[in-house]
Each structure stands twice: as structure tokens, then as C-alpha cells.
Design a protein around this nucleic acid. Structure first.
Length: 568
RNA sequence: CGGGGCGUAGCGCAGCCUGGUAGCGCACCUGCCUUGGGCGCAGGGGGUCGGGCGUUCAAAUCGCCCCGCCCCGACCA
């Protein structure tokens, strides 16, 4: 295509509203324009890139036998009421009424619609397994859209759903998706980590998230460089650093001491001249309507996800100050486990075996020293703490890293959540009605593009992986008015097309600097510069990523690009 | 939803405090010039100053209300 005919509105300056690199570059390079908070128009370049991404996704989904469909974005309320999610989704769901005042919503995901299709049509075990997918616009009324295309209210998602007769079948479908996702993200040129994830309130036994490292991300993952262990921070297991000071030896009894005005762990640590790790942190939570006292080491953080799983109520809440006063007779700054009989005590595993620690006395402005778990109070021990920098891998003992990431894909085993509630049944070989088991698998299409930009950019612009760049190569005649340059450029352009390359010819009547800057900005992996070396029969092949340039004969240019592309 | 910030030409901003002809840079159009990294010269077009109400002889500027966008937090199958 000829650049002069295209709409590629590049910006010299960064629009004020853009903060993260991918957002700035998508705007500056003329890929997208914002229409409303979290709603973007995808212009020519973005659309080309997204089409390349969806093509890769389709090929890999088709390769595991998945069948593409296209389901409605507009859904009737009844469907979501059946699964119970009409209420669960709350304000995150876009809702509307039709002219007859019927309730409708815009789909956030398509478990309901897929299950409705399945229950209407699937009758026999002979029809299973099935994997159905679609690439469809999803709508979520995010409380706070942000970071360009990373958190938006309308976006493209590839979502697939598997239906199997039994757990083994689901395991197979899950495994297929896992491998397909790896191929998809590999082909898109992303560096990513597949991490164990929390399967969420929607049930399900196993879940992996596919995460790309980025400062613009919102999720933290824990990775072990040595053995490859990786998990979402909220569920990651780890070995904490040992306490900063050894526990006092000896068989002491708890002993109160006055701590006027010392309410926080840090204040008590300063007051006692003992490290925070010598204290027990007491948290009062209400799960399933009942109070629980939770203990973690003073310098540790509770993992809300882990507590949610252990307590069986992911919707738990912190106790109100009045409740704490009623139950403990003291305020939050002076709580501890000794003498607590009116609620269960859950303690983090890091407290197991500790002796003679500091804890609140359940009396305002008093703490206890010499508190020993198991002797001075009874507690149930669980892994409740959130992994932290400095922790060691539970598998191999190497140091763990915590990395900020963007989630680009998520697979999980749904179980019977939807097939059960929505009445999907088929007959098995024995003629009995059974409920198929389901899996659900998503990929954020725009997030692949955004994550790639976050990962690969420099001061001058995007450096897109060739597979998802809107063009493979841009041909830049330094002076298009020069007949020799024009002819050579057009010849190379045609050679590229003949070689099956997506080529862009910058035929604009612009200064060379402008053309170079724009080519760098929009991130095309290769550039062929037609300029002064043409007199000797040469043009320059420049690699966007490395900026390395090589002189090639005019007649070889297209082939050279194709060869480099094949290596990439 | 809580806290903060911002809305003036397509983009980046000044002007507002202290009311009095709406400005600058880039971009855009015309001509000349130039052609290996956002070139130069000359001329030109483009504005409901986010919206409404009010105060005033007079409002981009002061007051009240509303809307939009961004950032932090809460939230996030």
C-alpha cells in the first residue's frame, strides 16, 4: 500500500491523557483514538495488527479441534438469572431495557450463552467432547478504565468452552488449551509466564493465567528463576525469610506490659526494641457471618485469597471496630490470641514452632510477651500469608522474584457450575442422564498488542514482533520525486508483494527525517531505504529492533527481507 | 464510590490569581526552497475558551450547578 493514500495520523507529541508507554504509542503512532473512557476506535494500523493476532488465535484454536462460532453480545436477563450471575456481576455488567421494558445486558463473557446452546442441542455422550469458541466484543462497565487498551470497557476476547463427559476429558481439553495458548503467545512474539492462578468464586479446580511482565500491569506474580515455579501472588506458596531475631528460649508464661499509645506493629517494634518478626499480627475477620481471629507474623501480610479458600467464604470482611470491642474488650491495636474462646483462631504456618512472641493483650494499651502458639493458645495452622520479596522457593529454595504483569490469557476448569445450574444433561452409554463438565478459556486480543508494545518499544516508538506488526516492511525512498529512487522503490515494493510480504511504500512528499521518524514510531520490523546508495545499485535494509543496517542490491531487497523475516 | 488533577484550534500548552480585542509552538493550506533523521522562508485558514445558570456596563477569567477525561485508592467472572 502507498502511505500517501493511507490514514495514519501520527502525533509528534504525547497526548496529555496517556501515561503508560503502550497507550502513548498507540495514540502517537495513529493506531487508536479514544471515544470515551475505556472505549477506543481501532484505526487502520491497529485493525491490521489485531487481524494478524486473531488469525494466529484462530489457527491454533482450529488446530486443537475447536469450532468457531459468533454469539450475541446482547443477552436477555433471564439467561443470566438462571446461572445466578445477573446479581453476582453487579455494576460491572452493562444493563439495558428494550422497548417493552424487558431487561437485557451486554455479555461480559459467554458461559451462559454457550451452555444454553449446548443444553438445547447436546443429547448424547456420542456428541462429546466439544470445544466451541468465538472472538467477540465483550462489555464490562469497569469502575476505572485505564492504561489505554489494558483496562477498557469494550474489548475483544477469544473465549472458548469445553464440554466433556468426565474429569479426564476436561483434563485433556485443558491441556490442549494450555499448549495452544503457549503456541499463540509464542507466535505473537510475547515473553510470558504461565502461572498457577486462583480459580475464583466461579468454582473450578485448576487455573492458569498467562502473564506478560509490564510495569503497566495490575497483577503480581511470583517466579522462581531456578526451578520455574510460578504463581499468582495471591496464591503463591513460598518460604519466608527467618525471623530477624531468635525467639527467647525458655518456658515462660505470657506476661502483660504497658504499651501506651502503641497500636501498630511498627510502633510496638520500636517500643520493645524487637523486630516486627517477633510479633504476631492479629486480624479479626468475619467469614460466613462468623468472626475468626487470624494470626500472621508481624512483618507478614495476609493473603486474602488464601484466607478466602481456607474459610470457605471468599466474600469475607474485616470486623467493624464496634464488633472488635464487643468480642475482645479492646480495640484493634491491642488484640491477641491469648484467652480468646469465642471464635476460632487461624494462624499462618510461619508461626508454627515459634516461641515467646509478642502479641496484643486484649486490653487497651497492653501487650503480652512470651506468647507461644500451641501452649498459650490453640490455633489451626494454614498457609495464609502472602509471598513477599526475599522469600525462597518452596520447591528448590532459590530466591523468588515478584513481577508486575498484564494478564493476556486465562484458562480454567469450570466444573459443573454452569451445566448444573442451567440444566445441561446428556445420556451416557448406559442410558443415564449425566451432567457434562465444562472448561472456560479466554484471551484478551487487544492486550496481546498492548503487552507487546509494553515489552518492545524504545525512545522512537514501537518495535513490534513481525508476526503481529501491521506491515512486514516499509520501503522508504529518501526522495520520492527522484525518478530513479521512485522506480527502484516501486520495484522493490512489487517484489515484496510477490514474495508474499505485507509491504508499505512511503511515497509521501515528506522530508526523509519525517519518514524515518514515522516508520520507527509505527514499529514496522524492517525498512528498506532507497537513497544515495542507489547510484551503486544498493539499498539499505534496516532492522527496526537492532537498528542494524545492511546494503543489499536492489534486486535482492525483497528476498533479503523475506529471509530475515523467516529467521525472526 | 472516596481522594487529587485537568478541560482554551487536530496535538502540546500560556492567558485565569488582579474581568476589558483569545495567544504561542507543532500540525494544516498556498507558494518558493530543500531532500539520509520531525529542514528553511513568506503568506494563510481554523476557537460554542467542556455545558448551563448567575454576578457585572463587560466573563476564558469571579460564584453556583452539571458533564467529560486522567491519576491514586476501593472494586475487578
Amino acid at each position: 500500500m502507498y502511505w500517501s493514500k493511507l490514514f495514519i495520523p501520527t502525533l509528534r507529541e504525547v497526548p496529555a491523557e496517556a501515561e503508560v508507554p503502550s497507550h502513548q504509542l498507540l495514540l502517537r503512532a495513529g493506531y487508536v483514538r479514544q471515544l470515551a473512557a475505556g472505549v477506543y476506535s481501532y484505526l487502520f494500523l491497529a485493525q491490521r495488527s489485531l487481524l494478524k493476532i486473531t488469525r494466529i488465535v484462530r489457527e491454533e484454536m482450529d488446530a486443537i479441534g475447536a469450532q468457531e462460532m459468533l454469539l450475541p453480545a446482547l443477552n436477555p436477563a433471564e439467561l443470566w438469572q438462571e446461572s445466578g450471575r445477573w446479581d453476582v456481576m453487579g455494576d460491572n455488567m452493562f444493563r439495558l431495557k428494550d422497548r417493552f421494558q424487558r431487561d437485557l445486558c451486554l455479555g461480559m463473557t459467554h458461559e451462559e450463552v454457550m451452555t444454553a446452546i449446548a443444553r438445547g442441542e447436546l443429547r448424547s455422550y456420542k456428541q462429546l467432547p466439544q470445544i466451541w469458541y468465538q472472538i467477540q466484543t465483550k462489555f464490562r462497565d469497569e469502575a476505572r478504565p485505564k492504561s489505554g487498551l489494558l483496562r477498557v470497557r469494550q474489548f475483544l476476547m477469544k473465549d472458548s468452552y469445553s464440554f466433556d463427559m468426565d474429569q479426564a476429558g476436561l483434563d485433556t481439553a485443558y491441556e490442549k488449551h494450555y499448549r495452544a495458548y503457549c503456541r499463540i503467545f509464542d507466535r505473537c512474539g510475547l515473553e510470558y509466564a504461565a502461572v498457577e492462578a486462583h480459580s475464583g468464586a466461579m468454582g473450578g479446580s485448576q487455573s492458569h493465567e498467562f502473564m506478560v511482565a509490564s510495569e503497566a500491569g495490575e497483577d503480581f506474580i511470583v517466579v522462581c528463576a531456578q526451578c520455574g515455579y510460578s504463581a499468582n501472588l495471591e496464591k503463591a506458596a513460598s518460604r519466608p525469610a527467618p525471623p530477624q531475631a531468635p525467639d527467647p528460649e525458655g518456658d515462660f508464661s505470657p506476661e502483660p506490659f504497658h504499651t501506651p499509645g502503641r497500636k501498630t506493629i511498627a510502633q510496638v517494634a520500636e517500643f520493645t526494641v524487637l523486630p516486627e518478626s517477633s510479633q504476631m499480627k492479629s486480624l479479626v475477620l468475619v467469614a460466613d457471618g462468623k468472626p475468626v481471629l487470624v494470626l500472621v507474623r508481624g512483618d507478614h501480610q495476609l493473603s486474602e485469597t488464601k484466607f478466602g479458600s481456607v474459610s470457605g467464604d471468599p466474600e469475607f470482611r474485616p470486623a467493624h471496630p464496634e464488633e472488635i470491642r464487643e468480642w475482645f474488650g479492646a480495640d484493634a491495636g491491642s488484640l491477641g490470641p491469648v484467652g480468646v474462646a469465642n471464635m476460632p483462631i487461624l494462624a499462618d504456618a510461619a508461626l508454627q514452632g515459634r516461641r515467646n512472641m509478642i502479641a496484643g493483650a486484649n486490653r487497651d494499651d497492653y501487650h503480652l510477651r512470651h506468647v507461644t502458639p500451641g501452649e498459650d493458645f490453640a490455633a489451626e495452622f494454614h498457609d495464609l500469608r502472602q509471598a513477599a520479596p526475599g522469600d525462597l522457593c518452596v520447591n528448590c529454595g532459590a530466591a523468588l522474584r515478584i513481577v508486575k504483569t498484564v494478564e493476556v490469557g486465562h484458562i480454567f476448569k469450570l466444573g459443573y457450575r454452569y451445566s448444573e445450574s442451567m440444566g445441561l444433561r446428556v445420556l451416557n452409554a448406559e442410558g443415564e442422564e449425566v451432567t457434562p463438565i465444562m472448561g472456560s478459556y479466554g484471551i484478551g486480543i487487544e492486550r496481546i498488542l498492548s503487552a507487546a508494545i509494553e515489552l518492545y518499544h524504545d525512545r522512537d516508538g514501537m518495535v513490534l514482533p513481525p508476526a503481529i506488526a501491521p506491515f512486514n516492511v516499509v520501503i522508504t525512498p529518501v526522495n520520492f520525486a527522484d525518478a530513479a529512487q521512485r522506480e527502484a522503490a516501486e520495484r522493490i515494493y512489487r517484489d515484496c508483494l510477490d514474495a508474499g510480504l505485507d509491504a508499505l511504500l512511503d511515497d509521501r512528499d515528506e522530508r526523509p527525517g519525517v519518514k524515518f521518524k514515522d516508520a520507527d514510531l509505527i514499529g514496522i520490523p524492517f525498512r528498506v531505504t532507497v537513497g544515495k546508495k542507489l547510484a551503486g545499485g544498493f539499498v539499505e535494509l534496516v532492522v527496526r529492533q537492532s537498528r542494524q543496517a545492511a546494503d543489499v542490491p536492489v534486486g535482492e531487497a525483497a528476498r533479503a527481507v523475506a529471509a530475515r523475516l523467516a529467521e525472526a
